[in-house]
Nucleic acid binder design. Structure first.
Lengths: 149, 149, 149, 149
DNA sequence: TTTT
DNA sequence: TTTT
């Protein structure tokens, strides 16, 4: 009885990060920027950029890790999810992410947005970054789990 | 060159809060829940509820303040916006909200989702709540501003 | 490299029609109305209703046949598809439908939009209707086919 | 109490056609293709292309007429509308179009999807084409009308 | 053909 | 941190 849907078209700010949970499930993180232009009260054109944290799981994670790169323009469809975590002082903190289940690379073949792997899919060495980076180490997925979030 | 769109169908967790900026612009805040059901690894049906903070401005804010109420099911369309604020220790904190520009009340006349004002639009007494409540007092809008965010 | 998405919230004009292809694949057809209100040049409020033909396949078709009914308000997500057929004079004709892959019943339990089967899922006796009714008799699906359209 | 929304990312099949109603309102028509790939029952990758007729009004029509061209990849957001017309034998016919209110050119500067006017906005000489081309000649709009469809 |  |  509910709908939770996000649709974004934007550009990656950095290369995506592909990782694996302890049980071997692929997860890919990256952020994309959307920019809105508007006129301020003086009639001058201004821009406002919004950054969105994207999480992708399983097969689509592998594809994102393999084909996406900094600067690429993509279409993302997914759902909003707010994740709770604790900062170093044990205080509760919340981070909102888009859990994407569809991704389309935009632009046409021949430009930087063309198909074809950009590089060897690079697995990130570790996950010691401070939040909002998720640490999935303590998540005990089976690789074939139908992960519900 | 970008798209930032959120579509939600969910139910209000509380009555909406209608306020006005110092310059008289109406702003309405409320949160809605979306619930997803899935089967866990034991095959049992589980539910996961997500809460979304909604912000509405100007005329639509007045409508939301007047017609929405706790429990009502609505359709929301808007954009994602992450707002930065400081906690009491001066640390940067971020809250993600949906700035809605379309709202539809769902359900049919005769149920609790019917049309007709639920009450006198209630203006909240103050805005001294802790974040993620936005404090718009220091925002100097003109009422007719084309507020860009 | 493309996106084809339709999102509708509207009411069924009639009970849905559930059928099966020769190979046993369930297909459900119904139409929903969306209504837009606007002001004409005299400032009078006018309404314009749009009718949308919905097609649903397989498991979701069974659900729609079982739970939907005339008047119910639903959320539909799917894709646009234009189907070519021939009228009685052999002229080519085109009908645009929404092939839905997600459906949500709206409203809350207790009203007419509540859950629970409305009746025995009724299979339509035949398909001798004139277009835009699709005649799937000559479609040779295997029940488990991953029907691509 | 309803929602009627279409979201497309696709490529123009031809240059857009910019026209004006008798009262001077700009209207732009073009079609875009979306392509879906799937595997047939033999496991072979197949493609299915869908064509969508787009109608844009007023200021956005001028922009589309000026900047869009055959082959360009765009994002379109709008609503479904089925228009009734009569064929030469006086039989009723129906054409479904997307009335777009948002358009974004995709891809990055430097490729064929770059910004900058492609040519002088070309006004089509006449509108004697057979349907589904709309003939707006008998529509009596005032240029500033808030055209409701 | 629905609904408000 | 992107892009225009």
């Amino acid at each position: 009885m509910s709908v939770n849907k996000v649709i974004l078209v934007g550009n990656l700010g950095k290369d995506p990060e592909l990782r694996y949970t302890a049980s071997g499930t692929a997860v890919c993180n990256f952020s994309i920027a959307t920019t809105e232009s508007y006129k301020d009260r003086d009639g001058n054109r201004q821009e406002k950029t919004e950054w969105h944290n994207i999480v992708v799981w399983r097969q689509l994670a592998e594809i994102c890790g393999k084909y996406l790169a900094k600067g690429k323009q993509i279409y993302i469809e997914g759902k909003l999810q707010t994740r709770k975590w604790e900062d170093r002082d044990g205080n509760p903190r919340y981070t909102t992410e888009i859990v994407a289940d569809q991704m389309q690379m935009l632009g046409r073949a021949g430009d930087d947005n063309s198909a074809g792997p950009r590089r060897e899919p690079r697995q990130e060495p570790s996950m010691n970054q401070s939040p909002p980076q998720n640490n999935y180490d303590n998540v005990q997925f089976n690789p074939d789990d139908d992960i519900p979030f």
